[in-house]
Design a protein around this nucleic acid. Sequence first.
DNA 1: TTTGCTAATGAGACTCGATCTCAAGTCACA
DNA 2: TGTGACTTGAGATCGAGTCTCATTAGCAAA
Lengths: 157, 157
Amino acid sequence: MADLERSAAKEKFLNFLEQKNLRITNQRRAIVETVFSTDQHFTAEQLLEWSRKRDSSVSRATVYRTLPLLTESGLVHEMDFGKDYKIYDPNYADHPNHNHIICDDCDKIVEFESERLETLENEISQNLGFTVKSQQLRINASCEDMKKLGACNKKGH
Amino acid sequence: MADLERSAAKEKFLNFLEQKNLRITNQRRAIVETVFSTDQHFTAEQLLEWSRKRDSSVSRATVYRTLPLLTESGLVHEMDFGKDYKIYDPNYADHPNHNHIICDDCDKIVEFESERLETLENEISQNLGFTVKSQQLRINASCEDMKKLGACNKKGH
DNA sequence: TTTGCTAATGAGACTCGATCTCAAGTCACA
DNA sequence: TGTGACTTGAGATCGAGTCTCATTAGCAAA
């Protein structure tokens, strides 16, 4: 993410808080700066760890309370990859319709967008009497690297 | 599901157990009969409750131990709808590539299949260097009924 | 049948991500 | 500076899912 986009996202979130008459606290600032200083997908626990490096007073509760605000503001996307924890994506504002392929062997995640896919989704939904609010296509796959390795050194994290 | 399909699925699962040198116990029988006597999506907890009506000795642990066998056999599909529990679909064997639209207002779930969608998914994955293992498209939407009602009597469960 | 091996079981402890509670702190505005 | 509502951190709690372990029960061979 370019520096400009980062600060724009941060700015948007602070405006979002103001609009909702919510306070801009040091803890929220630390969390938001953390979120928009990375391109990476992250878990709540990771966000806590990273945010504490900026402000050691940030607590788990505040992270879990801020995350819904971030998704509600439309700047961050909450995702489910079939793991037992949620994954958050800070690139949502720039690419609101992107999808994910995840390699089951090495957990690599690749994002992609497809206009054809969107069109098709809307078409199908309409035929079934629905109006699309959001969509999430998740493809579980195995990547080339893993095929080369024979997927022998799996799950290195 | 037609009666024939039901007993066919049950039969397939018992064969699956045999192939893996696993035993056919009363508890497993009760669970499998429960699964293939409904078309409905269900949670692990629901499956426990229903199975206990057939055999009160069925325990939570056994349900949770049997579920992975059912998905491994390819007869049941495990799904994630962004809730904090998993949902299982007993119609998988007959429609292995179906997708879901969920009405955010009334939790109605509609299944659909689309060859065009599958083709597109495979094409995209290949271009990105992945081989598809499974895919899950989830569309969150609002349905006609809810639009008519103005979504005023939401979440009736 | 009986026997013996071993998979399978139930009860309940446990894990862990996520949420809730509540007393204390802090922000904004008068 | 005072007031009241919003936020906070610590830790209790929740709940889905997993694990442990002593006991039970398939099932194949005798």
